[in-house]
Structures are given as C-alpha cells and as structure tokens.
Design a protein around this nucleic acid. Structure first.
Length: 492
RNA sequence: CGGGAAGUAGCGCAGUCCGGUAGCGUACCUGGUUUGGGACCAGGUGGUCGCAGGUUCGAAUCCUGUCUUCCCGACCA
C-alpha cells in the first residue's frame, strides 16, 4: 500500500511534515517540542557534520566540549545575551526525586534537594565558554583561540516544528577569541563564507550573504552576519549565522590579555553556528510531491540498486553480478545500497527510495544482463534511461555530479526569480501576498520603520546584502530618504 | 500563551451525538503463487480506546483535569 503524501499544493506544512516522518528522517517523541532523529536522518546529519568539521579544522579550528549547564550567575553576566534568551530557558532547580508518600509508585521532586543556584540548560554557550576562556588567556601569545563544539542546546520555543524549530536541537557553535577587532571581524566573515560554501556546494541550497539589522541581531553581538535561503513556499530561512561579538563578552567576564607593550586589553570575540535546522531547509528546497530529493554529496545513500528477478536462480545470478558492481562503486567512494530483500517487490522499492530521496536508482534484471545494460533513474528529474554496464561506475560518478549541479541550479533559478525589486508599499504587499520570496526595497534605516513593516506585513528584513550597492531612493513605507535597498521576506 | 482541530492495533481511520464490554483498511506472522512502478489467495497475531480522576450496575462514548501533536497568531535558529 502506498504511503500517502500530502502534496505541496494541498498543504505545504503538512507536505513538509509528511516528508520528514515518512521519509524517516525524524519522529515526534513523548517530550514536548523534542524530536527523535531516526537513523536515516542522523546519517544525513553525520554527513553534513563531517564535511563542516573538516572545513572548520582546515581553517585552523579545534573541537572542545563545554558543560550542558550554565550557572545562573554566569548566564546573566552579559546582559543583552541573558535578556535575549531568558524567556526560553529550561532551568534546573533540584537534583533529586523521592517516592511520593501520597501517590504510590510515583515520584516527586525532593523539596530538600533544591540547588543553591539554579542551572540554566544552555540555549547557547557564550557564557560558560567565556567564563572558561578567562582562565586560558593571559597574553597575546595565548591568542587567537579557535574552538568549536558540537552540542545540543535547548530553547523553550512556544511553537515547534520538526527540524525547523525544536526545543532541543543539535548544532555546532564556534567561539573564538582574538587580540584585535580586525582579526575578529575577519574570522566572522571567514566563517560566514565557510557556511555559504558548505550550504551551496554540498547541500545545493543557494544562499544570500548579508548582515542583520540591529533589530535582528544576535543578543550580545555587535554585528550578525547571516546566510539566508529561500524555501519553495516563498518563505525565507536563516540557514546560518556568524557573529562579531566585539568586546561584550570579554568585558562581561573580564577576559583581558597583555599585548606586546604589556598593556592590558579586552579580548575580541566571535561566535558562529549552524544547526539541524539546515535539514529542514534542505527538505524544503529540493523535495517534491513524490518525496525527499537529497543532493548526492550529502545523501546517506547515493545509489540504490534494485534487482528484478523471477525465482531464486535468477536472483543468485543477479546477486553475483551486482556484487561486482557494488564493489566497483565502493572503490570509487560511492555510497551504494543493494536492496535484494525478498519481501518487497520492485515497484514498492522504486517508490520507497524515491520517497527517501536517493539520487540514483539502478534497476537490473535478466533482460539487462542479456543486453549488458541497466536501467538508471535519476531522482531530480525522474528520467529513466538504459545505460551500458561497461563503464557504469564512471557513468554514475558523472551523473552524481550532474545531479548535484542541477539541484543547485534549479534552486538558484527559483531563488533568483523570487527576488523582486519594489518601489511602493502597494507593490510590496502585493508581491508578498502573491509571489512571496525576497523583496528588495528601500528602507529608511530606522528600527521604527522596520517594526512597523513587520507588524503590517509580517515580513522582516532578512539581511542587508554584503557588498550592497549604494543607491538613493525612498523608503517603501515612509518615503523618507534611503541610501540602499535591503531584502525583506516572510521567514521561518 | 490565545483561537481552532485531533489523540482508538505499527500506520491511516470508523465507532462518541443516543453509555451495554471495540471494528475497517493497511502493515505484521505462516504457507503458497508472484516479482520491469507501491502483487494475489488462504489462515493468523496484535488494542482495552493519550493519561488521571469522577458519574454509572456498566464508560472509547458523559463530566473534570492534564499531556502531546497539527493549523492560525504572539515568540524565535
């Protein structure tokens, strides 16, 4: 029986949920707002993580691990950061349960076991890390510190969605310390470029690089750089952020170093992160009504081989032949799965692997053996063709590259077609309500106007693009003078 | 947290109005026939109806509370 999928046209949100659950990326759990990442989804995350991890190391970073809990007194040290996250913190107040005397078989919090100081479950780790860096840094010779951690964090969100916004999520957070602002800013931009490189070239998701307005800035940052992606429903998704933290945390945690002239200076900081949210963005960028569409470079399975046979004898012949193919694929570094399980028929497997987004499917039966060919189907275009067994590994390698490219180009074309320049408020609203996507419009630069637009249109300034050309114009809402266009969108 | 919807077998649902001891499809198990786009036949297994109370001779059904999920808001990566 078919796994019924909701189509995008029917209900975009439900379509997304269906893909995540039926594509076996994740499941709901018994915990509010928290999901179970299933093996297939986790394999995807592992591939993403491995690539990013290498990129971080190639740019000189090392991994470390800091505690899950942050004492409240440390958490509140950097005021803006604390204020920004305060309303979504899980707090540990007790350390013991006891048998409930009034309720047999039940446990209750032991009122005797109240913590002297509450522990915040980290929503982000600047506080605990900067408190630690204080002890690591004395001299300019101790700088820079280039550390990343892979971790889980908790943000008690009002409304959660699989991958896009969960109460607990997996991410990496880089936290670096530098002797100069120039160096820290360079680091911030470097990591933004690493993210853009990864998301575009590995996930095939085109992004716009930019800087956030003061309103949208990370709590405690001087500047927040971001990459913004566009989903198929016309809403934007913040895919990664890189923050220049100035000396805010150094001052809050009193982290100073002696420079070459033996002068005490505060350290300059950055932090940057991407999360499992990227998986949500990946799903909503490429997938279709048949299921997931995963880019080859990070797909857990790049090629699936489905045998078609009548009787055990034919199966054995195929097993042997395909065994050689698999060996050759693996030698070429291709992630291949041979599904010769007998309990599902070919048609069922075809549909299943389409749902799972496997980039290439190879079907092979007696007919093909005779003709020394296989049937090769690509997930991105759903085209099928007969190709020679001779040189198949090379054919597949080439096709994987082609699919990767095609997915990116397709997404980029869609994205580019959905950046609309508008001059008037009427146009602004009309584009937003009908076409969606990014709107490039003049803004007078004030937070009041930004707030007003958010209130009226539910659209926010996603970013001020990097290298944005200066252009005189009039603010789309107020008509006040403006020097540049910024990108607006409704966002996840 | 406000408004709306839902929770019954792994999954999708009916039954709830009008209380009488749980059903359909699919999946799963066994056997057989099948296998180039989600196979077919036969025989089986599996739930006490999200959870906790209450009303009643009797509760999936009525009442109260609570948890979780989805959609729309406010909040946010």
């Amino acid at each position: 029986m078919a796994k019924e999928l909701t189509t995008r046209a029917q209900d975009y949100s439900q379509w997304y949920n269906d893909l995540v659950i039926k594509g076996e990326l994740a499941d709901y759990s018994a915990v509010r707002g928290c999901m179970v990442i299933k093996p297939y989804g986790y394999a995807l995350w592992e591939n993403m993580r491995d690539v990013l991890d290498k990129m971080f190391k190639d740019t000189g970073h090392q991994n470390a691990y800091f505690p899950l809990f942050v004492p409240k007194s440390l958490f509140e040290a950097e005021e803006k950061n604390a204020e920004g996250f305060a309303k979504e913190c899980a707090v540990v107040t007790h350390y013991r349960l006891i048998a409930d005397p009034n309720n047999k078989g039940k446990l209750m919090v032991d009122p005797e076991a109240k913590l002297e100081e509450e522990l915040i479950v980290r929503p982000t780790s600047e506080a605990i890390i900067w408190n630690t860096y204080k002890t690591w840094i004395q001299s300019y010779r101790d700088l820079p510190i280039l550390v990343n951690q892979w971790a889980n964090v908790v943000r008690w969100e009002m409304r959660t969605r699989l991958f896009l916004r969960t109460a607990e999520f997996l991410w990496q957070e880089g936290h670096t310390a530098h002797a100069t602002a120039v160096e820290a800013i360079a680091e911030t931009k470097q990591m933004l470029n690493v993210y853009a490189d990864f998301v575009e070239n590995w996930m095939a998701v085109p992004v716009l690089k930019g800087v956030k307005t003061a309103n949208e800035r990370f709590a405690g940052a001087e500047d927040t750089y971001c990459i913004e992606a566009l989903m198929q429903d016309g809403k934007a998704l913040q895919a990664g952020t890189s923050h220049f933290l100035g000396q805010n945390f150094a001052k809050a945690f009193d982290v100073k170093f002696s420079d070459q002239n033996n002068k005490q200076e505060y350290v300059w900081a950055t932090s940057w992160g991407v999360s499992t949210r990227l998986i949500g963005g990946l799903v909503m960028t490429h997938s279709d009504d048949e299921g997931l569409v995963l880019p080859p470079r990070i797909a857990p399975i790049q090629v699936v081989i489905v045998p078609i046979y009548k009787g055990e004898e034919q199966k054995q012949v195929l097993d042997e032949k395909v065994g050689e193919m698999v060996k050759s694929f693996k030698a070429a570094g291709i992630r291949v799965k041979y599904d010769n399980s007998d309990h599902a028929r070919p048609g069922w497997k075809f549909a299943e692997y389409e749902l799972k987004g496997v980039p290439i499917r190879i079907a092979i039966g007696a007919r093909d053996l005779e003709n020394k060919q296989v049937e090769l189907a690509r997930r991105d275009t759903k085209e099928k063709s007969a190709v020679a067994m001779e040189g198949l590994t090379q054919t597949v390698e080439n096709l994987l590259v082609e699919i990767q490219t095609n997915l990116f180009e397709r997404a980029k074309k869609y994205r580019d077609e959905h950046i609309t320049k508008v001059e008037t408020w009427e146009e602004f609203m009309q584009v937003l309500d009908t076409k969606g996507g990014f709107i490039s419009a003049h803004w007078d630069g004030t937070a009041e106007t930004e707030d007003k637009i958010k209130e009226l249109a539910k659209a926010t300034i996603r970013c001020i693009p990097l290298d944005n050309p200066l252009e005189n114009g009039k603010c789309v809402l107020t008509g006040n003078a403006s020097t540049q266009r910024v990108l607006f969108a409704r966002a996840y």
